[in-house]
């Protein structure tokens, strides 16, 4: 048993898991506010990362400015998607809404491949020192950055939903749209805002992953990895999404460890979360923190 490797992998899993948690959080945000299951969440990461990469390498914008412009762009992008594509589908059956986000997903995946090619592109280096030693373990400084950013985003979410006016309006809309509307909350605005926030937060995660691993269409797979995380945590719980993300991150790394050292099945890194997903759907479909939906006739 190689304990050091296991520990290192678990740490990696924690760091990647917080990123999953961030993406899962933005997924849950859309689901809670507008009841849309967004299969195109991964494409938000992809688009954000490619835009930032394009600004940084082709136009030589400094990192901070490039990052801010990306976020501004993603705000508009999120609102545009909601208004143009999702708004006409309000009140349509689940299958239509699911399919339209799947359609968006393959559309933007192909568009990004067309515009930027199929090869992974590295970001220009952001930090001087590449590797930092924490408690005797070597951690890449970009990983630390991603951890800090993820935790910061989670803190910002917590503040936003408990203290800010817009956050409260969003929670009210998620609780009951008609009641929210009667209290003078613009549900349209809340929908648009939730998509904008979700797109921005996902883009931050996309840029972080891009800085760590390089930008490629593999980023959109984060949008699929989100499903085990959110089902584990409960589809409409933000806390659950964060926890689910971390658990999935650790799980896939630990599965990878046992796969390479003991089982030699291959590819468990990718597949293990999906086995867990099916198990949870069988045993506890509302996840750890999700609200149980009681249907009345």
């Amino acid at each position: 048993m190689n304990w050091e490797l296991l520990f290192q992998l678990t740490l990696n899993g924690l760091i990647v898991g917080t990123l999953y948690g961030v993406v899962a959080m933005s997924f849950v945000l859309i689901y809670k506010a507008s009841q849309v299951v967004n299969f195109a969440q991964g494409e938000f990461l992809l688009v954000g990362a490619w835009v930032c990469w394009w600004l940084l390498t082709e136009h030589r914008v400094p990192f901070l400015w490039g990052f801010l412009i990306t976020l501004a762009f993603m705000t508009l992008f999120g609102i545009l998607i909601q208004v143009v594509v999702l708004r006409p589908l309000i009140g349509e059956p689940v299958i239509s809404v699911i399919m339209v986000t799947i359609g968006l997903s393959i559309f933007f995946q192909a568009l990004m491949k067309w515009m930027f090619g199929v090869f992974a592109q590295p970001f220009p280096p952001i930090f001087e020192t590449q590797v930092v030693s924490v408690m005797g373990l070597e951690v890449q400084s970009v990983y630390l950055m991603s951890l800090v950013i993820s935790v910061a985003i989670m803190g910002a979410f917590a503040w936003f939903f408990t203290a800010s006016k817009h956050g409260l309006a969003m929670r009210a809309t998620a609780f009951d749209q008609q009641v929210a509307q009667s209290l003078g909350i613009s549900v349209r605005q809340v929908f648009a805002m939730s998509w904008a926030i979700s797109a921005v937060v996902s883009a931050v995660a996309g840029v972080v992953v891009g800085v760590v691993n390089g930008v490629s269409s593999a980023l959109s797979f984060y949008g699929i990895k989100v499903f085990p995380a959110v089902i584990l945590g409960g589809l409409d719980s933000i806390l659950g999404a964060v926890l689910g993300g971390i658990i999935v991150g650790v799980l896939e790394n630990v599965a990878h460890f046992f796969d390479t050292t003991l089982l030699n099945w291959g590819n468990m890194y990718q597949i293990a979360p999906f086995y867990v997903l099916i198990l949870i759907l069988m045993i506890k479909p509302y996840g750890l923190f999700g609200t149980k939906n009681i249907e009345r006739v």
């Binding site: 594509v85 006409p88 349509e92 399919m99 359609g103 393959i106 568009l111 491949k113 067309w114």
Partner: peptide, 20 residues
């Protein structure tokens, strides 16, 4: 090849919006 995928995605979206 990318254009084909894009057109498939676009066709799904457009049909759902205009001819569900």
């Amino acid at each position: 090849s990318f254009l084909r995928e894009m057109v498939i995605g676009a066709a799904i979206i457009l049909f759902l919006i205009f001819e569900p």
